[in-house]
Lab assay of single mutants.
Amino acid sequence: MASQGTKRSYEQMETDGERQNATEIRASVGKMIDGIGRFYIQMCTELKLSDYEGRLIQNSLTIERMVLSAFDERRNKYLEEHPSAGKDPKKTGGPIYKRVDRKWMRELVLYDKEEIRRIWRQANNGDDATAGLTHMMIWHSNLNDTTYQRTRALVRTGMDPRMCSLMQGSTLPRRSGAAGAAVKGVGTMVMELIRMIKRGINDRNFWRGENGRKTRSAYERMCNILKGKFQTAAQRAMMDQVRESRNPGNAEIEDLIFLARSALILRGSVAHKSCLPACVYGPAVASGYDFEKEGYSLVGIDPFKLLQNSQVYSLIRPNENPAHKSQLVWMACNSAAFEDLRVLSFIRGTKVSPRGKLSTRGVQIASNENMDAMESSTLELRSRYWAIRTRSGGNTNQQRASAGQISVQPAFSVQRNLPFDKPTIMAAFTGNTEGRTSDMRAEIIRMMEGAKPEEMSFQGRGVFELSDERAANPIVPSFDMSNEGSYFFGDNAEEYDN
């Protein structure tokens, strides 16, 4: 993207840094990872977990959730003011799984939030270390993106479920800051804005008074975040219109849905970061690795190297396929839920299948599930090659597409044709070009129609051997075009429920 120079890199967003050079960025990201790792080690000690239990991804998720809940100030305040039966607002906890007599047992633990905050700050040299908290939120978000298709949420806001490739980060909490905003897809931002506008339509006082002023500035800020994701002048001009509207209503909703559809071809720039579970960072720190000293990046080879040398386990339900569970977590670790499966298959070195073909449910185990038949197995999170994460949407291309997802959002900077089903997408653009945004709409449609099938995206960008740390010898991959490109292809993934 041309304006790259004016933006802070995501590592800076990730670490609240002012302008830093590459070495400083690597050190501050490393410091953040160190903090998460030290916190995780301490929690495993508190909970008396064995090494194996500490490497269980379900335990990692519970521990991450506990610290996120302990620092969720708004919710904590709300819980104190609106006490609900049987919930102690000062405590947080969740299921911890232990191996007892050759069987997995679930144990519900409860801790004072104050105590968890103390352990977290102690692991982070006394700081609140917001960057580390956001990092864990993005890992949870990436896992949700890989596990669930947001059909219901899309339909509720009037969008087409086939636009799911635009929904990265749709389950990120509001408090995820600049680093969170960077990884949100165009569809996620559109959905947040539509929800806001709908509230304004239904509630006369939404934009009024002292609160209304705050609401208005939040609305304009979200519009600017979305505008910054678009790469064409016409899309940005249309966002200006939406932002400046005196009284946002149905016309703005129409414009936003139009823009979301246009992003299936004229893709937005959305950041991709490899955020790993805390149970990967903990053992690495415990083994003596100093992330701050060595430096770390979320968008280069580092996460690949770390996963190459990590042992992570997962509980497996009786009829689940461990290899499929591994694929789910591998995609989440690489922030690749909406990437082209052919690119992923090449990088991973084994075939990556669409969601609907995987015999696996989510990673988390519900409290009512029976533990008797639970097994555990090693997650295979290694890769054959590594590639640089991208934040450009890439230019655009036609490809055989599917009944489910009709476009992709690249996660890796790797040369390819970008699949999208042009006739299906263009069919949504018939007729409606009147109104105050008509010239911009016409211009956007013209650009979409001009998108050429034979153009290559990320020209000359390749993948790298894991021994090639400096990215000196790019390998331009070859793809098996007979395979499906979309992950949520004609899909039956479970729906995400809060």
Rank of each mutant, 00 (worst) to 15 (best):
A442E: 02
P83E: 03
P318L: 12
M167V: 06
Q398W: 05
L298M: 12
E192S: 05
R208H: 04
G288C: 13
D203Y: 07
S367L: 02
R26I: 04
M167C: 10
R162L: 05
N142F: 12
S60Y: 05
E369G: 10
R348N: 07
Q415S: 15
K293I: 01
G404F: 13
N202H: 15
S457E: 03
R118N: 01
K452T: 09
Q42M: 06
I388V: 04
K305I: 09
A403D: 05
L226T: 12
Y52I: 04
R461Y: 00
F71Q: 11
N319D: 00
M456N: 12
R355C: 10
K293S: 14
N483V: 01
N492Y: 03
T151G: 07
R317T: 04
G295D: 14
Y296I: 06
A271K: 04
K77W: 02
L110C: 08
A336I: 04
K98A: 11
T350R: 04
E254L: 05
R389M: 02
L328H: 10
I444V: 14
G209N: 14
K229T: 05
G200K: 07
F291E: 01
G37P: 10
Q12Y: 00
G54R: 10
R389D: 06
E114V: 00
H140E: 14
Y148P: 11
V67Q: 10
D491G: 10
S165W: 00
R361T: 06
N397C: 13
C164T: 04
Q58T: 05
M222W: 08
M239S: 07
R74T: 03
E114W: 15
I475F: 01
K90S: 12
M189P: 05
R99W: 07
A278H: 03
N247I: 06
L154M: 08
S467D: 06
M163A: 05
G490N: 06
P303T: 09
D51F: 00
A411I: 00
N202C: 13
E469H: 08
M374G: 07
T15S: 08
Y148F: 08
D240S: 12
S413R: 12
R204T: 06
N21I: 05
I116V: 15
K48V: 10
S335T: 10
Q459S: 12
A332T: 14
P95Q: 08
S3R: 03
Q364M: 12
R75C: 09
M426V: 15
C333P: 02
N395S: 14
A366Q: 05
L466P: 10
A181L: 12
R65L: 06
L358M: 12
P89D: 03
L418C: 15
A442C: 09
I444F: 11
V299E: 06
A332I: 08
I197M: 13
S345L: 06
V280Y: 04
E81Q: 02
A323V: 13
M222T: 14
P83C: 12
I475R: 00
I138T: 05
E73L: 15
A218T: 14
A263W: 05
A182V: 11
L315Q: 06
T6A: 00
P283M: 09
A179Y: 01
V363G: 03
N205I: 13
S269H: 11
V343T: 11
E254A: 07
A278P: 09
G460E: 01
L466I: 13
S402V: 12
K184H: 12
C223N: 09
G394K: 05
I57L: 15
V463K: 02
S297C: 07
L79D: 02
E434H: 11
K293C: 01
G356M: 09
A234R: 05
I119P: 05
K113S: 13
L358G: 01
S383Y: 04
I301Q: 08
E11A: 07
L226D: 10
M159P: 02
A131I: 02
P277R: 09
R348Q: 11
K48S: 09
R382Y: 09
K325T: 11
M32I: 05
S262Y: 13
Q12T: 09
S335N: 06
R389G: 00
K273Y: 05
R121G: 05
G177W: 04
A337L: 06
S482N: 15
S335W: 02
C275M: 08
R99C: 11
K452Q: 13
V285I: 11
F488Y: 05
D340A: 05
E244G: 12
M371W: 03
I475P: 01
D101Q: 09
A260D: 12
F291V: 05
M426I: 15
P303W: 01
L264Q: 14
L328I: 13
M481D: 00
G169K: 13
G362S: 04
R382M: 09
E210V: 02
A387C: 08
L266D: 07
I33P: 01
P89C: 15
K48G: 08
M456F: 00
T396Q: 08
N124R: 04
T396R: 15
K452H: 08
S478T: 02
G86P: 13
K91D: 04
L56F: 04
I225E: 11
R355Y: 09
M331Q: 08
L143M: 11
A403S: 14
A251P: 01
M456S: 09
L49A: 14
R117Q: 15
G362F: 06
D255L: 05
D497Y: 15
K351W: 04
N124M: 11
Q122T: 07
L379H: 05
R355H: 10
I388A: 05
R117H: 10
I406T: 13
T424H: 12
E24N: 02
I347E: 02
L344S: 13
A428C: 15
V363L: 15
D468K: 01
V476N: 01
A2P: 00
A428F: 14
E73N: 05
R8H: 00
K90T: 15
R117P: 00
S141F: 14
K357F: 07
R436N: 08
N319G: 08
E495T: 13
T171F: 03
V285S: 11
N76L: 13
Y148S: 08
P410S: 12
G185F: 04
L341Y: 12
N432R: 06
R317I: 03
M163E: 03
R174H: 04
K77L: 10
Q149V: 08
I425G: 00
P303Q: 07
I257C: 14
E107A: 11
Y10R: 00
I265S: 11
L276W: 01
A411F: 06
V329I: 15
G5F: 00
R236A: 06
N397M: 03
S359F: 02
F230G: 01
G54E: 12
S245D: 01
E81S: 12
A22S: 15
F464N: 00
A411R: 04
A373M: 14
F291G: 14
N59M: 07
G37F: 11
P474H: 01
V408R: 00
N319V: 15
A70F: 02
W139A: 06
L259W: 05
W120N: 12
R152W: 06
R19Q: 06
T232W: 08
L61C: 10
A284Y: 15
T23E: 01
L264W: 13
D439T: 01
G450T: 15
R436Y: 05
S345D: 07
P277I: 06
M448D: 10
E24V: 13
Y487W: 03
D468M: 03
A451I: 11
A218R: 04
G249H: 09
R461T: 12
D101K: 06
D112Q: 03
S486I: 11
S345T: 13
K357G: 07
F291W: 13
D51T: 15
L298S: 10
K325Q: 10
Q168V: 08
R348Y: 07
F206Y: 12
P354K: 06
G94P: 07
S165A: 15
L61T: 13
T92K: 04
G30D: 01
I197H: 01
V312Y: 08
Q405G: 05
R213Q: 10
A237R: 07
K91F: 06
R436L: 06
T45C: 14
A271N: 05
W120E: 06
V100W: 06
R162K: 12
I41P: 13
L143F: 04
G394H: 09
E495H: 05
E46K: 05
L143S: 13
I301C: 08
M191D: 07
R118C: 08
E292V: 06
G5A: 15
I116W: 06
I138F: 07
T62Y: 08
L166E: 14
E469K: 13
I25V: 15
R150N: 02
T130S: 11
V29F: 07
S353G: 09
A27F: 00
V155G: 12
S359N: 14
I425H: 00
A182G: 12
Y296R: 06
K103G: 09
